[in-house]
Design a protein around this nucleic acid. Structure first.
Lengths: 354, 354
DNA sequence: ATGAAAGCGCTAACAG
DNA sequence: CTGTTAGCGCTTTCAT
């Protein structure tokens, strides 16, 4: 009862972390009871539970996650894959995900693709190796499906959820906004202010968001009785730099549109910068609209008219869906959150003079 | 030799992941040899190694990290704790950390404090539970040392590195810039342009960066022969919102400084916004300087004069130091990277007229 | 250079 | 409600 105390020396040097055995011994119960007291308290007598808890407090016991994972085949970790961590658009989404995951007892590992496909393989290996129980995908496709080609393994064995960038054809829950409707709304807003020549700064070619938003732009044009002019579509990729480039494109033109709809706030801010440098005034000479409503949109000069996305809620919804899957509960295949048109100062009614 | 093939049914339904045993059997070696072929190839005959590699390819074997961790007591995971993931200042730092860690074979778990001390305990538990081998701390103090009080456990048993926000008194490698010198440089730059009334928008009280930058501001003032005026210090906390508030503070004043040194770009951008709204022109009516050189600094209107921090390199240096520690190699206790004064358009020489 | 065997710390059956 | 008993899959002595 006291002989089996410590295995040899107990100098204060290496005070090995307490194991479940130490707790069991101190509480005078079996290790199974300790385990149960932690996992399913209701299945343990109040008395035993109290003794276990006391022993845990006394020993400072913290369960070893590796052992737990090895035995239970559950990691309580979720992988979140995103195209670009530096994009401020994602940070609040991440917050929403993390807080929901945390409440459900899951940890979050972030996989930042940073624009390189090789990294995707790296994170795919995480799932293959069983490092995580599930994943939230923000980058618009399934692992190993970069080319959308044949051998696309529809699933890699763990629950998956797509967030923001829908993955066409994938049989997993998709959480997103109605990009098409939002883009249409903004286009109509611009048209309602008298603009008849509305340029469109696109996202990366092939991107699903771009596809949807472009369709919305066309919808809006049509709804306003405006005809589509391909010359008014300026390529972009959602970055500040591409917005700057789009601005140069615009400035160089002989005849300019009276309004520009940028499909990301970062592009809108970069574009306005170029316009200013060229001596053009926003919104007096040209109106500029964005998309996303990132933090800087409200403090840009002029403050940016844009589409607000409920970023935190988007993250929460995705995490909630994944947790449901993880716990074997059903979850809707598609969740669409509402956006909002935020009117600020970068868009003005077209002056008939102009 | 072929009887022990599969343990029972081998329907295509549940193709359990290959284990090291499967590889060993296929390669006709022991599991120990497979393990060694992976960890220490040089200790295995070329022949055996080839057979093992082939078997691995054939089975699609991926080592189980939980089992590996349980046995070797190494997680090959590093925790990165930061005060605010939404702050764009950190994203590039994270990139630098991740790429370096990845090359060294380590994964990264991000601990976003999001401004709540409770979360810190949460992430401290990660380290206590042995989920990670080491940690990089960007939040300016050690775990459980929030109050800087007595029982500060100087170490929690795993290697730690402090990044950006130095931790006074902690005996761990610290990677940072020379905040004091940089702030002094900016202050002197402003003074050299004729400004004699230079306001200072601070960081959060007690923050080590704030302490250093404030000292630098004082240094710069002194070097320029200017006296310090407490009324010119406006409180802030590095956020956009606090910059907006600082701007309101400024606008409300009867007599205004001719230049404002904001100790973060986000504050500078928020402040300029307020100034504009109040009809003040930057830099004509008032010069504004920032600190950090985030992406938006270059495209702000006007483009922001600021202090450039080598963010990616900072991250790389911290990760490199931690990996050295993890591998038992020595590393310098303090690394200071150079900053740069970036002159753009938000600061102008003081017009004698004014 | 290789194999046998002993666990790392935990949870899940299975009895009782 | 509780204890006993097996391992989860891997790395690592210790022999050979």
């Amino acid at each position: 009862m006291d002989e089996a105390a410590q295995s040899g020396r107990r100098g204060r040097a290496s005070v090995r972390a307490a194991r479940i055995q130490d707790v069991a011994k101190l509480a005078e119960v079996s290790t199974a009871t300790v385990s149960r007291a932690l996992a399913t308290p209701e299945r343990v007598s109040a008395e035993a539970r109290a003794r276990v808890m006391e022993a845990i407090a006394k020993t400072g016991y913290v369960p070893n996650p590796a052992a737990r994972t090895l035995r239970s085949q559950k990691t309580y970790m979720v992988l979140v894959v995103l195209p670009d961590l530096a994009n401020t658009f994602f940070s609040k989404i991440l917050r929403g995900i993390e807080e929901t995951l945390f409440e459900a007892g899951y940890g979050m590992i972030i996989g930042d693709l940073d624009g390189s496909p090789e990294k995707e393989a790296h994170f795919a290996a995480y799932t293959a190796a069983g490092r995580v129980d599930g994943a939230i995908l923000l980058h618009g496709h399934l692992f190993g499906q970069s080319r959308g080609g044949e051998g696309a393994p529809d699933r890699i064995g763990i629950p998956l959820v797509a967030l923001c960038e829908a993955i066409p054809g994938a049989d997993i829950p998709q959480i997103e906004i109605d990009n098409r409707a939002a883009a249409s709304r903004m286009t109509r807003h611009l048209a309602s202010l008298g603009h008849r020549s509305i340029a469109y700064v696109s996202g990366p070619a092939g991107n699903i968001l771009e596809l949807e938003r472009f369709l919305g732009y066309r919808d809006g044009l049509e709804a306003a009785g405006l005809s589509f002019d391909p010359a008014l579509v300026i390529p972009g990729d959602y970055t500040i730099e591409s917005g700057v480039a789009a601005g140069q494109n615009l400035v160089a033109r002989a005849s300019r549109p009276t309004a520009v709809f940028c499909t990301s706030d970062e592009m809108a801010i970069g574009l306005m910068r170029t316009l200013f440098s060229a001596g053009l005034k926003v919104p007096d000479d040209i109106s500029v609209a964005g998309f996303d409503d990132i933090e800087f949109a409200a403090v840009a000069e002029p403050a940016l008219t844009t589409i607000h996305q409920p970023r935190r809620e988007l993250g929460q919804a995705a995490a909630t869906a994944l947790v449901a899957l993880l716990q074997g509960r059903p979850t809707p295949k598609r969740i669409r959150l509402d956006t909002e048109l935020v009117i600020r100062d970068s868009v003005a009614a077209l002056c008939p003079m102009s």
